[in-house]
Amino acid sequence: MDLTGKCAIVTGASRGIGRSCALSLAGAGASVVVNYSQNKAAAEEVKKTIEESGGSAVIFKADVSLYNECEGLIKCAIDHFKRIDILINNAGVTRDNLLARMKVEEWQEVIDVNLNGVYNCCKAVLRPLLKQKSGGRIINVASVAGLHGNIGQANYAAAKGGIIAFTKTMAKELGSRNITVNAVAPGFIETEMTDELSTAVREKIMERVALKRFGKPDDVAEVVTFLASSANYVTGQVIAVDGNLSM
């Protein structure tokens, strides 16, 4: 998995799965744009870790729900690294609630960041990617919730399901330009996002995981890096990284 000379953008890269993806892509030789929305200190830490292992990285603050900030993010990659090869759409939020209690703001925010954010970044990256005429890799981080649904996550599941359909469509539209578009669907991964769940809920989920452990961000990053590098003939796919979680 050699990405020497390539440039990757990872959204939501300061923590969790995004952070692991940034480190893994950098480990394979890519220069990385570490996007964050709030936690600058954590983003700096990711950049530092990459640089200490001999890689190159830059941090960039952007709220992916805003198109002009996504344009800025793409421009940052080109300004610093003169090219763009890989986009990892990872930034996401949860506002869990049963639909009966879900406020319109909770619905809207999750759609804005998780789904519109993917549109914004893909749209903004397309012009430079097509102009470069050297193909490209787009990997969207969906979720098993988007494949099967999940109680309390109507907003999140809808956004993630939308990402999956978007991924399949982009793969068709861009295949002739050698731009592959795939998604990963993580299951229960130990991050700050899943830390919020109670012990009882965690135990219940664990019973349904064939591999009998929760996933780690690195488990997802491995698959993302594979899709970004040696998966030359794979596009329009959704790979569940969930230890075989039955929903």
């Binding site: 012009r127 097509l130 102009k131 539209e173 861009l174 002739s176 330009r177």
Partner: peptide, 11 residues
Amino acid sequence: ADSLDIVELVM
């Protein structure tokens, strides 16, 4: 020229 070619040309 396919539809994406036209889009690239327009850009």
